[in-house]
């Protein structure tokens, strides 16, 4: 079974995303910040990651930079998912190794569309 890691300090967003992704049959893990997400990735690298930007302890940008340096860290498809929607922020996220970018708020159709674009649908 393919695995998906939901990284967001909002439990509501994680729950919402999990519900939207349910039909794709993923096994889910959750992290409330980048540091916890990194620990999960070190032991069990997921196939896909939905990644918030602003989080306590370690933010999304610091996480993805660390992730891409890990053995096998180039594998997961990372969808940045944030309210930080200025062009320079999008460029920074993509430059740091994100595969796609979702501007919050989002709906199920957008999430499905982005999964398809990165080959995870």
């Amino acid at each position: 079974m393919k695995s998906f890691l939901l990284v967001d300090d909002s439990a509501i967003i994680r729950k919402l995303a999990k519900r939207m992704l349910a039909k794709h049959g993923y096994e889910f893990s959750e992290a409330e910040n980048g540091a916890v997400a990194l620990m999960i990735c070190r032991t069990d690298m997921p196939n896909g990651i939905l990644l918030d930007w602003n989080m306590p302890v370690m933010d999304g940008l610091a996480f993805i930079r660390e992730l891409r340096r890990l053995p096998g860290g180039d594998q997961p498809k990372v969808l940045f998912c944030t309210t930080e929607c200025e062009m320079d922020k999008i460029e920074t996220a993509m430059g740091a190794g994100a595969d796609e970018f979702i501007m919050k708020p989002f709906d199920e159709e957008i999430l499905s569309s982005k999964l398809e674009l990165v080959g995870l649908a």
Binding site: M87, I90, E91, M94, M103, F106, E109, I110, S113, L117
Partner: peptide, 20 residues
């Protein structure tokens, strides 16, 4: 809208061919 441009449009093409 932000919703419309996120349905089917890869982010790289959005940045290249659209103005926010």
């Amino acid at each position: 809208s932000k919703f419309e441009v996120q349905r089917g449009m890869p982010i790289q093409l959005l940045m290249k061919h659209f103005t926010k």
